[in-house]
């Protein structure tokens, strides 16, 4: 199980031919998706090649501030994407998603680098820090996005119930508790589901990649288990954090539901 088959550009291009099937389906069923397919294929190739080049440069430099800068940029984009996916907006939503994803992903990734994989030298070794952060960010983004969407939607659809609670003497926390619980639960369901079926229904991409690259399957599995735990905890932290920050924006200290802020 040593080494891996190094792919030539021609072999990558050969795999790209498979997209022609999609094109044929699109033409056959008159889906008119050929331009999108072409664009998506080109973007996949170009974006990943660029990432590869950037990572090679970062790995070669091995400077802590470059790793942090790359990590910060990834986190910022993830935070903005999480807010952008939300169907509803309120003032401060961008800041809330960025803070939530930043805090949760960085706490968990730091724990992984400094405590779990403490043999990495230096601690910011980009070979570990950047892929780990990337995996955590990608999944946390989903949790935050789902949690935030569920929370704002629940507040809009249950506005009468929330206000009826407040009107009878509920504190803002008591009035918002049901939507908070609903949002956090919904945000965490996907990661719990994927933890349930991992290895049975699906083989995670990271583990598959490591096995293809020549790592012993059991070693690859250990990495995957660690990743699943990191992702689960970061998703929980991120979801709880974005829902609580949203709660503080949308309920005043005077126990008022500021429903007018949600657009």
């Amino acid at each position: 199980m040593n080494g891996y088959v190094e792919l030539t550009n021609g072999q990558v291009a050969l795999a790209g031919l498979l997209i022609l099937f999609n094109g044929a389906i699109s033409i056959g069923l008159r889906l008119q998706m050929e331009p999108s397919l072409l664009l998506a294929s080109v973007r996949t190739t170009v974006q990943l090649l660029l990432v590869g080049l950037v990572l090679e440069w970062v790995f070669r430099l091995e400077r802590w501030y470059v790793v942090l800068a790359i990590g910060a940029m990834m986190t910022l984009i993830a935070g903005l994407t999480a807010a952008g996916r939300n169907q509803r907006r309120y003032p401060g939503i961008w800041l809330n998603t960025v803070i939530s994803i930043w805090a949760s992903a960085w706490i968990v990734t730091s724990f992984a680098l400094l405590a779990v994989m403490r043999d990495t030298e230096p601690w910011y070794d980009p070979q570990y820090a950047i892929p780990l952060l990337g995996m955590v960010l990608g999944n946390t983004l989903n949790g935050i996005s789902v949690g935030l969407n569920t929370f704002t939607e629940a507040l809009v659809t249950r506005r009468d119930q929330v206000e009826a609670q407040l009107a009878m003497g509920a504190s803002r926390w008591e009035a918002a508790l049901a939507p908070i619980q609903h949002a956090v639960r919904t945000g965490m369901i996907p990661i719990i589901n994927s933890m349930m079926i991992v290895g049975i229904v699906s083989l995670p991409g990271m583990m598959t990649g490591q096995i293809l690259a020549g790592m012993a399957p059991v070693e690859a599995v250990k990495y995957q288990v660690v990743i699943m735990f990191l992702v689960a905890s970061a998703t929980s932290l991120g979801t709880v954090s974005v829902v609580l920050l949203s709660f503080l924006r949308l309920f005043s200290n005077d126990h008022q539901f500021l429903h007018g802020k949600i657009k």
Partner: peptide, 19 residues
């Protein structure tokens, strides 16, 4: 602030659409 829930337990608002 924190007095409001207690106040609202004494002065209850009932909305047009029952929730």
């Amino acid at each position: 602030g924190r007095d409001i829930p207690r106040f609202r337990s004494q002065v209850i608002y009932l909305q047009q659409r029952p929730a």
